[in-house]
Amino acid sequence: MRIAFEEMKADRLLTARTEHGNVAPVLLARGDEPGELRTDVPYQMANILLRVVPYLGSDKIAVVARRCDEKAIAEMSKRGLLDSGKISLIGLACDAEQVSECRCSDPCPSKVHIGECVKASPTDKVVEDLLAKSISERLEFWTAQFRKCNKCFGCTSNCPVCFCDECLLEEKTFTPEKGIPPGFAFHLIRSIHLADKCVECGECERACPADIPLLALRKMVNRDVKELFGFVSGDGETTSPLLTTLDGDSMEGDNDVC
């Protein structure tokens, strides 16, 4: 990690280390005492990065990034919310145990500096089981799940690609006034919002105190988006199909003439 950091000529390093006997994210400046650096705990560095960037000024930052961090950073950079020119990635390949714990299908960063890539299953048992259910069983299942939601917003605040300061789900426009549980629409609206950017990091599901299988929902919607538009979140180039014309044109900067 140190070698990669040196090579990247960054001013800061975002990683995790042991703090007071626990693991915590840390932002190191050049020359800081690194302490006991840790890569064995899946912190969503992209999410933390978004929060520290406003305080960095012109400093360049290196981030220890797993594949999901990398994709989230790409999604945010594409939207102009991060400046990819100032960010270097120290690619961290997750180990088999981590991959299986995250039910990750895409664990290998585009450039690996730490660890070795392991194979991942493209399918997810939880998703397969849910899709095997009949429509009425699904409704029964998800109604029960959504009823558990206590609207803590853990899923939104831990999401690396959820970027709004104020969430419209905090208002009563689309969800009933009564409050908790927030009704059937809450997690579906979130699904639509994440449809063109979710990187399947699983933070929402990990954060959920009610154990709602949100990662499975994300994976199912991502699959729909891929089927409908051939679009997969996580690259820094492709404009979201939900924003473009049927020819894939956006009004901005696209002078392609047919």
């Binding site: 579906l188 199912m220 939900l242 473009t244 014309t245 049927l246």
Partner: peptide
């Protein structure tokens, strides 16, 4: 499609609404 008063407004509709229907289908609607 092609006749939208706002040129390509409905191109976006043509993508958003089918996706919305699919998302609903996933949770039993």
């Amino acid at each position: 499609i092609g006749d939208c008063h706002y040129m390509t407004g409905n191109h976006r509709t043509a993508k958003r609404i089918p996706l919305t229907a699919k998302v609903l289908e996933k949770v039993g609607i």
